[in-house]
Amino acid sequence: VTTYKLVINGKTLKGETTTKAVDAETAEKAFKQYANDNGVDAVWTYDDATKTFTVTEMV
Rank of each mutant, 00 (worst) to 15 (best):
A49R: 09
K51Q: 07
T54F: 11
L6W: 02
T2G: 06
T19G: 03
D48G: 06
A27L: 02
G39H: 09
G39I: 14
Q33F: 05
K5L: 07
K5S: 05
G39D: 07
A27K: 00
N38A: 14
A24I: 09
K14M: 12
F53S: 00
K29E: 08
T18H: 11
K29R: 10
T3K: 05
F53A: 00
V7D: 02
E28R: 12
T56G: 06
D23Y: 02
V40I: 14
F53T: 00
Y4Q: 01
V40C: 08
T45V: 09
A49V: 11
Q33Y: 05
T17A: 13
T17P: 03
V1Q: 10
K5V: 08
E16C: 15
A30Y: 14
T17R: 14
T19E: 04
Y4K: 01
V22C: 10
K11D: 11
F31M: 02
V22S: 10
M58I: 12
D41V: 12
V40M: 11
L13A: 05
N9K: 09
A30R: 11
E28V: 06
K14A: 10
Q33D: 06
T56K: 04
D37A: 13
N9C: 13
V1D: 09
E25I: 10
V40K: 06
G10P: 03
D23H: 03
V40F: 15
E57Y: 09
K20A: 09
T54D: 01
G10I: 15
V43N: 08
T17D: 03
A49F: 10
E16P: 06
N38D: 06
Q33W: 05
A30N: 07
D41R: 08
D37T: 12
T26Q: 10
V1A: 09
V1E: 11
A21D: 01
M58S: 10
K14W: 12
Y4P: 01
V1S: 08
V59Q: 10
A27Q: 00
V43T: 10
E16T: 12
K5I: 09
K14P: 08
Y34Q: 04
G10N: 07
V59D: 13
T50F: 03
V43S: 07
T52Y: 01
G10R: 07
V43P: 04
T3M: 10
T2K: 09
F31A: 01
L6N: 01
E25N: 08
Y4D: 01
T12W: 15
T52W: 01
A30L: 14
D41M: 10
V1G: 09
T54A: 03
D47C: 08
L6Q: 01
A42M: 14
E28C: 14
N36S: 14
Y4R: 00
G15S: 13
V55Q: 03
K51N: 06
T26V: 04
T50Y: 03
F53W: 04
V22H: 09
K14R: 13
G39A: 07
D41T: 09
T18A: 05
F31I: 02
F53H: 01
A27M: 02
M58Y: 12
K29M: 09
T17M: 14
T54M: 06
M58W: 11
A24G: 02
V22Y: 09
K32F: 05
Y34H: 04
N36F: 15
K14N: 14
T54H: 08
V55Y: 07
T52N: 00
V59Y: 12
K29D: 04
V43Y: 10
T19H: 08
G15A: 14
K11L: 15
T52F: 01
T17Y: 15
N38K: 13
A24L: 11
F31C: 03
T2H: 13
Y46N: 00
T26E: 11
K14L: 11
T52K: 02
T18I: 07
F31W: 02
D47V: 03
D23P: 00
G39P: 05
W44Y: 02
K20S: 12
D47E: 04
V59E: 14
I8K: 00
Q33L: 09
G39T: 08
F53G: 00
A27Y: 01
A35E: 02
M58Q: 12
D47N: 08
K14S: 13
D47Q: 03
F31Q: 00
V40R: 06
L6G: 01
V43I: 12
G39L: 15
E57V: 05
T26S: 11
K11N: 14
K20G: 05
D23G: 02
A24R: 14
A35F: 14
K51H: 11
E16V: 12
A27N: 00
K11C: 13
A24Q: 12
T45M: 06
T26I: 05
L13R: 03
N36C: 12
Y4I: 02
Y4E: 01
A27V: 02
G39Q: 07
W44A: 01
W44K: 00
G15K: 14
T50S: 08
I8D: 02
K5R: 12
K32E: 04
V40S: 04
D48K: 05
K32M: 09
F53N: 00
D41H: 11
L13V: 11
A24W: 13
V40Y: 09
V59G: 12
